[in-house]
Amino acid sequence: MKKFVWFVLTLALVLSACGAPAVEAPAAEAPVATEAPAEAPAATEAPMAEPFRVAVVMPSGITDKAFGQSMYDALTRIKDQMGEENFEFVYSENMFVVDDAAAAIRDYATQGFDLIIAHGSQYGSSLQEIAPDFPETSFAWGTTVDTFGQPNIFAYEALSQEGGYVNGVLAATLTKSKVIGVVGPIETGDAKLYIDGFKAGVIATNPDAQVNVNYIGSFSDIPLASEAATTHIAAGADVLSGSAQMVVGAIGKAEEAGALWFGTQSNQASLAPTIVVASQVYHWEVMLAEMIGLIQGGTLGGQSFSADLANGGQVIEFNDGYALPAEAQALADETIKGIVDGTITITLP
């Protein structure tokens, strides 16, 4: 027993010895936070001295094949476009605790990032409080349209009903059983928009088709989402779709039963290469590029952006692994065109 005590004590000593000098020098902060905060004025010249620095806080993981990953991928694309020397970003993932996210946002703000993205509608309240304290820093949050009238908050949203509508049109065309199943998390936000759009698309194309929707009450319950998919299949569905990160198992259920799948948020084709027809994918980089341009020009916020099919913030990515009949492809293209030029209007319930 004594040995154990000594072991603990020695560890403690070693540790405090290591810890002590570092504690005295809080300058050993972030590896990225060493240089002085880059401010807007330097921005107008073409070659920037300082890289543009972005921090993002998100409720799920960067590898969720859904909402979180869509933002991570977008930032990676921006980095490719602007070059590594001109753009860097850091992230806090899995910040599903709203309170922790608020602390993270505030902390990033004190470190002088150029843009801080709160990638979750539940963070709005926190941002409303933090943003006024950092008038030099630009914030963005989504998905919403509300900038709280603050000059340094951008808002962004995805008109998910558009992609949902296109997916719905295709689903209605491809279903043989005339039964289509949809799995959702809780009945709000982005998921609700997508699903309502999807339903509208199905009904507009094939009024006889029936859309069964199942909200499973959670963004994380993969087993229940999968069973919901199985239930849809047992109820006769031969085409399925679903929103949010817990549907990854449901896609497999569709594959097992030979049903088709329509994805949203990120490209989900890799999960079931033969049955994913198309995924509505968010390309946030379109609106991010615009935002960065504004910030470099001195406008720190006050505007809201929509990612939609017209501006390329939303893209229907067809899966090469699935042979979509030519007429269905034509219908999809026509629908996208119709939504873009305004001849198709989507009415939500």
Binding site: P59, F96, V97, V98, Q122, S218
Partner: peptide
């Protein structure tokens, strides 16, 4: 605010 889970609020 809810994100559908308990810990989103309670931490």
């Amino acid at each position: 605010i809810t994100d559908g889970s308990a810990s989103g609020f309670t931490g």
